[in-house]
């Protein structure tokens, strides 16, 4: 009886001690994790050697949000995640992809999920997804090594945006076409200006005028196609125009109306010449407008090509 009482007393005190320790350490642990759970582990090959730079991706079963990380040189990885259920994926060149369908993260304890990667005969072993690299720093065995979250960078801030990247890719593609067409346009534009010397005056032949007109038409077509790719290139929200591109865009307010006016005035001058008349009236502005347009266009190209 006495022994039983003593046993019950010890068990009661022991239980109380555990509860007390939880009460003391619980808030501390919660404070350390900030209500987030830790997931860590090591990726190894079939021999047990660590696999460096393997891509580890967590996907929240609840929200679908993915978070990538790479293993260090010692094969370890670490995530700090909100509590919930996650899928885990390990990928590395030369190894088969491993998927772990369910990992439960709570806000209190570190979950350890190791992964042994199996060699993949499809891809040559020894290749890695990484660039040619120099030796890596030492393994991160400091348990308190800082993370992005320690720097105040949330997973949402670190997460990539594939749509935004696609927008940037499309913008660059269109502006590259714009740039190339702009450079190509310089050729017929210069030729048109040069042949203008043969197209004007009483002595010029109809052939010279035709050549000038054809070159002008080619220039106009190329110019507006060039402009189309700049105008239709996606705008990046929140971008303030700064630097030489401002001059480049400002000059468009000169050469774009010029490229509309020049062919109209040219057509009028062409008709007057074809009737055997001297070019007169507003058509006399064809040459000066073309020169201003050409100068503005050339300066626009130069403004983004050279540093002044």
């Amino acid at each position: 009886m006495l022994a039983n009482t003593a046993h019950n007393w010890r068990a009661g005190v022991g239980g109380f001690a555990v509860v007390l320790l939880f009460a003391i350490l619980g808030p501390s642990l919660m404070a350390q994790t900030g209500g987030r759970g830790a997931l860590r582990g090591t990726a190894t090959d079939p021999t047990g050697a660590p696999v460096a730079f393997a891509m580890v991706t967590t996907t929240s079963v609840d929200s679908g949000q993915t978070l990538p990380a790479a293993t260090g040189t010692d094969g370890t990885y670490k995530f700090s995640l909100p509590p919930g259920n996650y899928r885990l994926r390990f990928e590395s060149a030369g190894y088969k992809t491993v998927q772990i369908p369910a990992v439960k993260i709570n806000g209190l304890w570190t979950v350890v999920q190791n992964c042994q990667l199996e060699a993949d005969a499809q891809t040559p072993s020894g290749t890695t997804a990484e660039p040619a690299q120099k030796p890596a720093p030492g393994p991160p065995n400091n348990p308190a090594a800082p993370s992005l979250e320690d720097l105040g960078i949330t997973p949402a801030q670190a997460k990539g945006d594939a749509k935004a990247q696609a927008l940037l890719d499309r913008r660059t593609h269109m502006l590259k076409v714009h740039q190339r067409l702009g450079l190509i346009t310089i050729g017929p534009f210069a030729a048109t200006l040069i042949t203008s010397a043969l197209a004007g005056g009483k002595q010029t032949s109809s052939t010279d005028r035709d050549l000038h007109a054809i070159l002008g038409a080619v220039t106009t077509d190329l110019y507006f196609t060039t402009a189309y790719f700049a105008i239709r290139a996606p705008k990046i929200p929140g971008t303030q125009t700064r630097g030489p591109i401002r001059l480049h865009k400002t000059l468009a307010w000169i050469h774009a109306p010029g490229m509309v006016l020049t062919p109209i005035l040219g057509e009028m001058a062409f008709a007057q010449k074809s009737r055997g008349e001297k070019v007169h009236g507003i058509a006399t502005l064809h040459g000066p407008v073309a020169i201003v347009t050409g100068a503005a266009f050339g300066l626009a190209v130069a403004s983004v090509s050279f540093k002044f």
Binding site: D161, A162, A164, L168, G243, I245
Partner: peptide
């Protein structure tokens, strides 16, 4: 700004 956006694109800065 044009160069910065281009840099962002070539370095896959959105991703």
């Amino acid at each position: 700004s044009n160069r910065d956006i281009h840099m962002l694109q070539v370095t896959r800065g959105a991703q």
